[in-house]
């Protein structure tokens, strides 16, 4: 057996098959699992009222946060490309947030976006704007998390930067000779050249969005103001009003808090299928706009 088969089997195949099996069982983590057929799926599709809010929240991230992240990372990379002096310093500064641990970053954001004492609303107040309640307002909780994710976009930005540096100079030169302005060069030279990287960023960003957990878990717990040090798990997942109850948060809640791992496994199977479907849609759609150098298109 070649090593990759072992690795694939142990770290991917086995958990996947087990998850699919568990999704047809009642499994409370404590007793051996018990076959219950499709009861978990029936509950998922017909009875669980928390499913659809959580699906909506997660799709919101895919539809709004992912494009923003790609655009933001691309924009920052473009600006960094223009920098003439202190390039290393700027690159480091824009990359640094990606190194912040997600829990610490979320705590920081809840603090600076605190509606009463946070500097952001303080500054808004100075110019006469009454800031929103951010993490405490169901309308603003997802945008708050989006801001946090945009801030930590360093990894994607570095990949864009590398791709931008790789765009052949001669293409720009010939475009300029043909009379193309900066915008046209961006549209007809830069974007096609880096389109595989845009695709990569979109796919990775989508998968990240579908799996977003830590920021929602920490943000909702802290913002609800009842983070307990007594070792008691928080009662506030999804705070406020289920607006941060993303699909993985609900999955965690069912599996580890409600002793309902069989059901959580069913949710995981659905997540896998949906992730796969969305990724396929993006990849298929990309054939129209992604250009691979040397692919003869």
């Amino acid at each position: 057996m070649s090593p990759w088969i072992v690795g694939f089997g142990v770290f991917f195949g086995y958990p996947l098959v087990t998850t699919v099996y568990l999704s047809f069982t009642h499994y409370d983590l404590l007793e051996p699992s018990r076959w219950i057929g499709t009861a978990n799926y029936k509950y998922l599709f017909t009875q669980d009222k928390q499913i659809w809010p959580s699906v909506y929240n997660t799709l919101w991230l895919v539809a709004i946060m992912v494009p923003l992240k790609v655009m933001f990372a691309f924009g920052v990379a473009l600006m960094l490309l223009r920098a003439r002096r202190g390039v290393g310093v700027f690159r480091t500064i824009f990359y640094l947030p990606a190194l912040a641990p997600p829990v610490a970053a979320t705590l920081g954001f809840v603090y600076i976006l605190n509606p009463a004492t946070g500097p952001v609303n303080g500054a808004l107040g100075l110019v006469g704007i009454e800031g929103p309640l951010w993490f405490s307002d169901p309308t603003w909780a997802k945008p708050s998390i989006t801001l946090l994710m945009l801030w930590g976009v360093g990894n994607t930005m570095i990949i864009f930067l590398a791709a931008l540096v790789d765009v052949p100079r001669h293409l720009y030169e010939s475009a300029s000779l043909d009379g193309a302005g900066p915008f046209q060069r961006l549209r007809w030279v830069t974007l096609p050249s880096i389109s595989p990287v845009i695709l990569f960023a979109a796919v990775i960003g989508t998968i990240e969005a579908l799996q977003l957990f830590t920021q929602a878990y920490v943000g909702s717990t802290i913002a609800a103001g009842s983070a307990s040090s007594a070792g008691d798990p928080s009662n506030d997942l999804g705070f406020p009003e289920d607006s941060t109850l993303f699909y993985p948060v609900l999955l965690y809640q069912q599996g580890f808090r409600f002793f309902n791992m069989g059901y959580a496994a069913a949710m995981a199977v659905l997540l896998l299928i949906v992730s796969f479907a969305i990724t396929m849609i993006i990849v298929r759609n990309s054939r129209r706009w992604v250009h691979y150098a040397g692919a003869g298109r």
């Binding site: 928390q50 009662n235 406020p240 009003e241 289920d242 809640q253 808090r257 409600f258 002793f259 309902n260």
Partner: peptide, 22 residues
């Protein structure tokens, strides 16, 4: 219950919406 504090958490969710006037 067999589902831990699930019933309390589901109630909490509702109460959060209620107190916000929704």
């Amino acid at each position: 219950t067999a589902a831990g504090s699930a019933y309390q958490e589901l109630f909490n969710n509702f109460v959060n919406k209620w107190q916000a006037g929704r």
